[in-house]
Design a protein around this nucleic acid. Sequence first.
DNA 1: CCGGATCCTTGTCGATACTG
DNA 2: CAGTATCGACAAGGATCCGG
Lengths: 121, 121
Amino acid sequence: MNFRSGCPIASALDIVGDKWSLVIIRSMVMGATSYSDFLKTPEKIATNILAERLRRLELAGLILQAQARRGSIRGTYALTPKGAGLIPALQALGQWGEQNIPGRWKCPDRFNAARPEDFPR
Amino acid sequence: MNFRSGCPIASALDIVGDKWSLVIIRSMVMGATSYSDFLKTPEKIATNILAERLRRLELAGLILQAQARRGSIRGTYALTPKGAGLIPALQALGQWGEQNIPGRWKCPDRFNAARPEDFPR
DNA sequence: CCGGATCCTTGTCGATACTG
DNA sequence: CAGTATCGACAAGGATCCGG
C-alpha cells in the first residue's frame, strides 16, 4: 500500500476512500454476509468490482472470509474489529446525509445503535 | 446529481466519496483558505483536479468562494455549515487512521476540537 | 508569482457475457 | 451461487502553458 501522506485521514481514505468499500462495509453492519447479499443491495455494484473490493478489504484486514461450516465451499464474509472500527465514521456520514441531502432514507435504528464491539474476531 | 440509491451513506459518498473532496475539506478545517494553501498540502493534488473539485464542492453547497476584500481578485474559500457538518465524519476517520494504520501522524488537537458550529455562514 | 486551463497518458470503473 | 474475462468509458495524474 502506498499512501499520499502520513495524515491519518488521507491514509484512511487511501484504504476505504473509493466508490464502494464503505458501502460494502455499511451492508455488512446491516447484516449482509454473502456475495449475493452484496449484489442484492439497491446500489447495484458490478460483480467484478465487488469481487475485487472483497479481496482488497480482506487483504487490508478489514474483513475476513470464513467457511460457513465444514463442507460449505461458499465463503461468508465478516467484519474484523479493524473493519468494525469504521462504524462511527459510517454513522457520522449517515447522519450528515440524512440532514443535508433531500429525500434520503432514514438509517435504521439498529444501524445507528451498532458498535464496533459487536464484531469481535 | 444522481444518486446510486436513497441510502444516506451511499448518497453522502456520491457527493464527497471521491479521492480528494474530504482531503480538501480536512485542509479547510485545519485553516487552509486559498488555492495555494491546498497545493502546499503534503498530498500533492494536481492543479486541474483541485480546480475542478473546488467548483464541484461549491456547486454542492459545501464551500463558498468569497472575495477576501474589495479589489482582491484572489478568492478565498470557506466552509459552509453544510460542509462543516462533515467534521464529525472526518474526526472519526482520523481516529480510525491513527489507531489502525501504522506510522500515521497524530491529528492536531485543534482539529479534533473543531466543531461544525465554528463555521457559521 | 498566483490561479488556473489544456493536452495527453495512465489507471480505475462499470456493463455484460461467460465459467466452475 | 460465486465469481472471472473482456473491453469500452471515464476519471485521475503529470507536464506544460497562459492571463492578470
